[in-house]
Amino acid sequence: MKKLLLGTVVLLAFNAAVILTQMSCKKEAKAEPAPTGTTIAQLDQILYLKHFTADRYLAEIWISKLDGTNNHKVNLTLPANMRVSDEAKLSPDGKTIVFSTLLNTTGGANTWGDGGIYTCNADGSNVKKITEASTDGYLSLQGVY
């Protein structure tokens, strides 16, 4: 009986030690508030590229709402022999599209190379060249901030 009582006391002491350890190691994750004057809002928009199986170098930029409604092609005008490549990003405010391009350097069917990076308004207007084409590789668009 003494051993049973002593075993119970030891187990209770061990249990109390575990509970105290867990309470002292409790971690709380508290997000810091955004800096004054900044807000982060979901745009309810998605930008995507439509590629064509008949011509693998042809892509169009499209925008829709997150629920799939209001699909529309972004109509933009690029210089001659230039096409939208396979990278496009929407700016955080939803007003600007940044995209990479392909340039047909010789006029042949499969002679597409890097054309540089461009921007335009979300409606396709105001197309501007941001970078020149790479002559010894290609440029890869990574993000818009």
Rank of each mutant, 00 (worst) to 15 (best):
M1Y: 09
M1T: 08
K2D: 09
L4T: 09
T8C: 05
V9Y: 14
V9Q: 12
L11H: 08
L12D: 13
F14W: 12
F14I: 15
A17T: 09
V18S: 04
V18R: 10
L20W: 11
L20Y: 13
Q22N: 08
Q22R: 14
S24P: 04
S24I: 07
S24W: 14
C25I: 08
K27N: 04
K27D: 09
A29L: 15
A29C: 12
K30P: 04
K30L: 10
K30C: 06
E32Q: 15
P33T: 12
P35W: 03
P35Y: 05
P35N: 11
G37Y: 02
G37L: 03
T39V: 12
T39S: 15
A41V: 14
A41P: 00
A41G: 09
L43S: 02
Q45R: 11
I46R: 02
I46L: 06
L47I: 05
L47R: 00
K50M: 07
K50N: 10
H51V: 05
T53G: 12
T53M: 09
A54G: 06
A54P: 00
D55V: 07
D55H: 14
R56H: 11
R56K: 14
L58V: 09
L58G: 03
A59G: 03
W62Q: 07
S64G: 01
K65P: 01
L66A: 13
D67V: 04
D67H: 14
G68L: 13
T69I: 04
N71A: 12
N71C: 15
V74R: 00
N75Q: 11
L76K: 04
L76E: 04
L78A: 00
L78E: 00
A80E: 08
A80R: 10
A80L: 12
N81P: 01
N81V: 08
M82S: 06
V84K: 05
E87C: 07
A88Q: 03
K89P: 01
K89V: 08
S91A: 12
D93I: 11
D93V: 15
K95P: 00
K95C: 00
K95A: 06
T96P: 02
T96C: 00
I97Y: 00
V98S: 02
V98N: 03
V98P: 02
F99H: 02
F99P: 01
F99M: 03
S100E: 01
T101P: 01
T101N: 00
T101I: 02
L103N: 02
N104C: 10
T105C: 06
T106S: 11
G107W: 10
G108F: 10
T111N: 14
T111F: 01
T111P: 01
W112T: 03
G113V: 02
G116P: 03
G116C: 12
G116M: 04
T119C: 12
C120G: 05
N126Y: 04
V127I: 12
K128E: 11
I130M: 10
I130C: 14
I130E: 14
T131I: 10
E132V: 10
A133N: 15
S134M: 08
D136M: 13
D136N: 15
Y138P: 00
Y138I: 08
Y138K: 15
Y138Q: 13
L141T: 01
L141K: 02
L141R: 03
Y145C: 13
